[in-house]
Design a protein around this nucleic acid. Structure first.
Length: 925
RNA sequence: GCCGAAGUGGCGGAAUUGGCAGACGCGCCGGAUUCAAAAUCCGGUUCCCGUUUAGGGAGUAUGGGUUCGAGUCCCAUCUUCGGUACCA
């Protein structure tokens, strides 16, 4: 029975008495020694513009990793992939003379710690701090060159003080549509007072104080809005759509009700256009730009008002196809549409009730089957006066457009399915240019689209749209409209473990901000983390009663807003997990600044045109990046930061996968329950054959590899090298324990280039004359690595270094200077072994502070080159020519070649193609 | 369904603008070293035919096309992965 190939580990070297070989124990010894030395000398600490010894004339490079959520389980080998990538780039840039900002911190608010607190009563801060210590220890052992003096966690009061401060900024700002930017609320008020800004039909000074407050509140970038949530009274919490299955909580199966709650929102939709437009200037992966565009979802169309038959009300719909107005044979309202309340028939009420308690996910799950109910009411098509029935159906969503549509069954798949299911009339109004099957939803020529008031017959779709929009405008039935899929951002969470909102409510429910000087609003400690069971949504924080109920003065509300002894109630919702990660890239510039969220000068130096390289997983391609961009733009508008976009260049590292095993019914078998038999994988217990598949590393699959184990086995340098050698950094690749030994052997050969293994002394031949081939190979390798690193093409850079070491090994000698240069290009990848060899070669300084080697262009080309000769596209021979040979000389040399002559016998040469330096192709028949 | 990315040896992968397909590593095979093993070193390793050699043929998911020449460009199809999900 063969042993299982995975996850059994292989010893890199058998325990040996030879302590001078680069084996497990020596690697670990070297690594720990230098890590301590780097720590003690603060070698990776970088200053700021105003610090002494800071050379501001050097170019800057801000290289940022997406900071991790420190889970209790610690790191697995997938975590460091991106970090190794950014570390290599940072080290390379330092050696090239850049000031490099390369920080690390912790995205530390999060659900797991709160869940754990609920189960065990341990304060989330305690759990989280412990996890951070574990993570930090693991990261340090990999030898990353982070400037640890800049480390912080989002749960630090010193940090979330400023998260709260930024939120207050948003609360105190509004979006000026005309100027397309955020401005302080005070500008809005003075604009209203000076009548430069209108607040509707009633003049500003005729409004009551309450009306004025309401108007202002309706303009704030951070505002209170109504939002439908999944409330689970039993769990005492709001659940995400995916956590609700069939109207019950996924965990525990408790009933979930959908209800509207007043919650803090961000007016991100105001920035939709800018968030979309500014994508143009970003050096980001194309796929991520695409996803951001789709998420924002800009569309052009028209708002159209339909009169209701028999009353003077109208219902507004949004459509991207105003040209199909004549084909609108019915109207559909979302169940939550305000007009629905006025319809009291039992069928409608039953349908609405049922739809309300279906989550969005459920509604979409059975999207094939279109349910709905007829209201019995009619709307009037403004184009032709036709009476069309009004239906209610949950395929129309309240959250998009106006929650109402004009249904054109002939030219929309969903409307078509609905009309077919409910036997509603279908009228064709667009003719395809070429005949087609089924429902025709694209562009063509308008037909059946004429009435006394407007006609578009014969017009192409684009023209027809414009005609209808123009007519809508003149007739007053509507207007052209740009719409977005993006919605305002729900920023309240009914959790304990998050940033508290710096705001309080008086007895009337009116809100007052806490003054800047009283920040941070710290989380109170509570004894019991079990959520309150209640029908009325009550976040966990509500349990801290003495904290919640306080006075304006105690809470820190400015006395000019509210008298200090006024009783107030604190906001008991907290901010979502995204909050802390929306501006952390700014804080790293000056993490201990006490007077500002970021020191102005440090910010403009490091963030001048955004982060130069941001590396992280594609799973954050939409939300984190969009939210951070939004905060950045807000702060930019308010003059707080110098850059309009936070991340100039973005890179996604690939997912590190691992082997897992699947039964024939596709259920998964833990790796430990599988063994290899005659080249097949079988489940130990049953003996059944299982399939080897590639899957994410996860606890449940028991296929997680811990970096600590790999380091104990091979050392951190080998781990780093292996993870970078697996394939392109952006691609996913399966972890294969087998392959690690390859790069470990490479390091052993590197070691042997300099060190006599028997004695541990430097090799005698280091003082010999340089070998010409080795010298050429070195220059080629320096050129290759220098070119590959900025592109993060580490796998090919490593391959070329392996080639160099192989050729130097074969040559039998290398000079001190050659080895020293090679060590410098190796050092970003394998910093420890490089440092050790660097020191042994007699250098006092650190290799990471040395200069990046240069190469001689002239050494890259050989004096003679070998060219393949093709005849009719097949290689038939090779010729050797001087590198500078002319096409004619090359041609003659090719025709003179014996082997070529042989192959050309009996053929007539028609044409000869010479590609200089590449190939010769002879066309003959 | 829609959008995006990708399909290359036994495996991970290389091939910068169309120019010697399979660099480099793993594994495997053979050899050296060793009492033996491990480790290390050297050589070989896409497949098929040719007993060896010389050589020949096929080959980058599939089927077509453009070109002197295609992994690379164009069209169609299939598969896998990721994102998204009735957005009117």
């Amino acid at each position: 029975m063969a042993p299982l190939r995975y996850p059994v580990r292989f010893m890199s070297c058998t325990p040996t008495k030879n302590e001078h070989r680069y084996c497990t124990s020596l690697a670990n010894e070297i690594e720990v020694k230098w890590q301590q030395a780097w720590d003690e000398t603060n070698i990776n600490k970088v200053g700021n513009p105003n610090d002494v010894n800071f050379d501001i004339s050097k170019p800057k490079f801000y290289c940022l990793d997406m900071f991790p959520y420190p889970s209790g389980a610690g790191l697995h080998v997938g975590h460091p992939v991106g970090y190794i990538g950014s570390d290599i780039l940072s080290r390379f840039k330092r050696m090239q003379g850049f000031n490099v900002l390369h920080p690390m911190g912790w995205d530390a608010f999060g659900l797991p710690a709160e869940q754990y607190a609920i189960e065990t009563g341990v304060h989330p801060a305690k759990t989280t701090r412990k996890a951070i210590d574990t993570f930090r220890g693991q990261l340090k052992r990999i030898g990353f060159s982070y400037d640890w003096s800049r480390e912080f966690a989002t749960i630090d009061p010193d940090y979330y003080k400023w998260t709260q401060w930024i939120w207050l900024k948003a609360y105190d700002s509004w979006f000026d549509e005309e100027k397309q930017k955020a401005l302080p609320v005070s500008d809005l008020v003075s604009g209203l007072e000076q009548k430069k800004i209108s607040c509707g039909d009633t003049p500003w000074n005729a409004l009551t104080q309450t009306q004025q407050d309401e108007f202002i509140d309706s303009k704030r970038l951070a505002y209170l809005g109504e939002y439908t949530v999944n409330w689970c009274p039993k769990l005492g919490t709001v659940l995400a759509n995916e956590e609700v299955v069939d109207g019950r909580s996924e965990r525990g199966g408790h009933p979930v009700v959908r209800r509207s709650m007043r919650q803090w929102m961000f007016r991100i939709t105001a920035y939709a256009d800018r968030l979309l437009y500014d994508l143009k200037g970003l050096d980001w992966p194309e796929s991520t730009l695409r996803m951001q565009k789709d998420w924002i979802g800009r569309s052009e169309g028209a708002d159209i008002d339909f009169l209701i038959d028999g009353c003077d009300k109208t219902i507004r719909v949004y459509t991207t196809r105003p040209d199909t107005l004549f084909g609108a044979t019915f109207m559909v309202l979302a169940p939550e549409h305000p007009f629905v309340e006025s319809i009291k028939t039992p069928e409608v009420q039953a349908y609405v009730e049922e739809a309300r308690n279906r989550s969005d996910v459920d509604r979409m799950a059975d999207s094939k089957e279109k349910t709905g109910v007829d209201t019995g009411k009619f709307a009037i098509n403004p184009a032709n006066g036709a009476k069309i029935p009004i239906w209610i159906a949950d395929y129309v969503l309240m959250g998009y457009g106006h929650g109402a549509i004009m249904a054109v069954p002939a030219h929309d798949d969903r409307d078509h399915a609905f009309a077919t299911a409910h036997s509603i009339q279908i009228v064709e109004v667009v003719q395809p240019d070429e005949p087609c099957e089924g429902c025709f939803a694209s562009e063509g020529v308008a037909v059946n689209s004429a009435s006394e008031v407007v006609s578009i017959n014969g017009q192409q779709t684009a023209e027809a749209k414009q005609t209808i929009i123009d007519w809508l405008k003149t007739s007053g039935f509507g207007f052209g409209k740009v719409n977005y899929r993006l919605r305002d951002w729900l920023f309240s969470r009914q959790r304990y473990w998050g940033e508290p909102f710096p705001i309080v409510f008086d007895a009337n429910g009116k809100h007052y901000p806490i003054s800047e000087t009283s920040l941070p609003v710290e989380l109170p400690t509570i004894d019991d983390y079990t959520p309150p069971v209640s029908d009325e949504p009550q976040p966990l924080l509500a349990k801290a009663e003495s904290w919640v109920h306080t006075t304006a003065g105690e809470a820190g509300v400015d006395a000019s807003l509210l008298s200090p002894d006024t009783p107030v109630r604190r906001e008991v919702n907290t901010m979502p997990g995204w909050a802390g990660s929306c501006w952390y890239e700014l804080r790293y510039c000056s993490p201990s600044c006490e007077t500002r969220f970021v020191d102005k000068e440090a910010e403009s130096y490091w963030m001048g045109n955004g982060v130069d390289m941001y590396i992280g997983g594609a799973e954050h391609a939409v939300r984190h990046l969009l939210y951070t961009r939004f905060w950045q733009k807000m702060l930019f508008d308010l003059g707080e930061v110098s850059s309009n976009e936070p991340f100039k260049k973005l890179f996604h590292q690939g997912l590190l996968t691992s082997f897992a095993f699947q039964r024939s019914d596709k259920t998964l078998v833990p790796t430990t329950e599988v063994e290899e038999k005659d080249g097949k994988y079988v489940e130990k217990i049953t003996g059944e054959e299982v399939n080897q598949i590639i899957a994410k590393m996860s606890k449940s699959l028991k296929n997680v590899v811990n970096p600590d184990d790999v380091i104990a086995e091979y050392g951190a340098d080998t781990l780093r090298l292996y993870e970078m050698y697996m394939g392109p950094l952006e691609a996913s690749a399966p972890w294969n324990t087998h392959d690690i030994v390859g790069v470990h052997r490479f390091l052993q050969r590197v070691w042997r280039l300099g060190i006599e293994e028997e004695t541990g002394e430097l090799r005698a031949c280091l003082n010999s004359e340089p070998n010409e081939d080795v010298e050429r190979s070195l220059h080629k390798t320096i050129a290759k690595v220098t070119g590959d690193i900025p592109q993060l093409a580490y796998n090919t850079a490593i391959a070329s270094m392996i080639e160099f070491v192989n050729s130097a090994t074969n040559a039998g000698c290398i000079t001190t200077s050659q080895l020293q240069q090679f060590i410098r290009i190796l050092s970003p990848f394998a910093p420890h072994i490089s440092q050790e060899l660097f020191a042994r070669l007699g250098e006092d300084s650190f290799v990471c502070s040395s200069q990046w080697p240069s190469f001689d262009e002239a050494m890259l080309t050989a004096s003679t080159i070998e060219l393949p000769v093709q005849i009719m596209g097949k290689v038939r021979g090779k010729i050797e020519v001087p590198a500078e040979a002319t096409s004619e000389e090359v041609e003659n040399a090719a025709l003179a070649d014996e082997r070529v002559k042989e192959c050309l016998e009996g053929l007539t040469v028609r044409k000869i193609i010479v590609v200089p330096g590449k190939i010769i192709n002879i066309v003959a028949n």
